[in-house]
């Protein structure tokens, strides 16, 4: 079997929080992502999903584990040349795209910058301009937008600009951190359709980090569910959404309202109790046990390992499954 595009193995990211305590934001996470595949990474605030995304791109340092991208191990601490080397393979788009775009650069300068740096002057200015134009057009902007500044764009257009900048280097992996959360419904669907097209036409792998379960279900081939730094369930999106195995996944899906008043009237569930705690210090048992309706002494005393569920590519970390 060929090696996947991205292989995350036992990766952790700890932050000291004073008093000798350590916040385990990402704790022993393993996940593969194949070429042309969209993996949805879902979880609530504080689950560590964004920390994991930033760690991959080098904005956070790993505390342990290995990440292999396109057959090469990524460094533990990125140096500037590492950023330069990785940027041709891996790009990221952000939720707060406005703060990720330089307010002093025009749209075409923003799109060209990566190409200019990557090619050390091999492209002529005219060729760069042509490239910028074609990428802007590829994401649904036009030549008329080339000389505009970020503040002259709407939220949806800015996200398109962020995507054009990411695509210009023709990466193999795109990390999208809540790319549509700040947008209106009608604009969200435009951006999601664009990402889906890009995946199909360019064969890019996408790690789609989001908390909107409906959108993740719609776009993802596989889904990974994170709770307090650990992956509790990974599997094919459709199967996981239809038959979630982990009690946390079940609670998460049950809490998601659906745009159908008839189904909502039939809803007979009690919301999951309690609050998300912070993953401070090593876990003595399952991180979800304090809120889990099925937890017993085993769950509180021993951390569950990921085990295959039903089929090989469906993994669940729960003693009771």
């Amino acid at each position: 079997m060929t090696e996947p595009l991205l292989r995350i193995e036992g990766v952790s990211c700890y932050f000291p929080i004073g008093g000798g305590q350590v916040l385990r934001a990402v704790d022993d996470v393993s996940l593969d992502l194949h070429e042309g595949e969209i993996v949805g990474l879902v979880g609530e605030s504080g689950s560590g999903k964004s920390t994991l995304g930033k760690l991959l791109i080098g904005l956070n340092h790993k505390s342990g584990g290995t990440v292999r991208l396109d057959g090469r191990a990524l460094p533990r601490h990125y140096r500037s040349r590492d950023f330069r080397a990785q940027s041709a393979i891996m790009q990221m788009i952000f939720q707060e795209v406005y703060s990720a775009l330089s307010p002093r650069m025009t749209a075409s300068e923003i799109v060209m910058e990566g190409l200019r740096l990557a090619d050390n002057g091999r492209y002529s200015p005219e060729a760069l301009q042509a490239q910028a134009r074609s990428w802007l057009e590829r994401v649904g902007l036009s030549a008329a937008h080339m000389n505009r500044y970020p503040h002259e764009f709407s939220g949806g257009q800015r996200q398109r600009l962020g995507i054009a900048r990411a695509l210009a280097l023709q990466p193999k992996l795109l990390i999208c951190d809540e790319p549509v959360s700040a947008l209106d419904v009608s604009v969200q669907s435009q951006i999601v359709n664009l990402l889906e097209n890009i995946r199909r036409e360019m064969g890019i792998g996408i790690l789609f980090i989001a908390h909107d379960l409906s959108m993740v279900r719609y776009i993802s081939d596989r889904i990974a569910v994170m709770y307090l730094g650990r992956l509790v369930e990974v599997g094919p999106a459709r199967q996981v959404f239809e038959n979630p195995a982990h009690p946390y996944t079940q609670a998460l899906l049950a809490s998601n309202p659906v745009p159908d008043p008839v189904l909502e009237r039939q809803r007979q569930h009690q919301p999951i109790q309690g609050e998300v705690l912070a993953p401070i210090g090593p876990a003595t048992g399952c991180r979800f046990a304090p809120r889990c309706p099925h937890a017993d002494s085993l769950c509180l005393g021993q951390q569950p390992e990921q085990r295959p569920h039903r089929q090989g590519d469906w993994l669940v970390a729960c003693h009771r499954v």
């Binding site: 419904v185 669907s189 359709n193 889906e196 409906s214 279900r217 776009i219 159908d260």
Partner: peptide, 18 residues
């Protein structure tokens, strides 16, 4: 607006309405 909202039973091969 309703067609642009992803729905549980939605066929995932179809693009979302915009």
């Amino acid at each position: 607006l309703l067609r642009a909202t992803p729905h549980g039973e939605m066929i995932t091969d179809q693009p979302l309405e915009t």
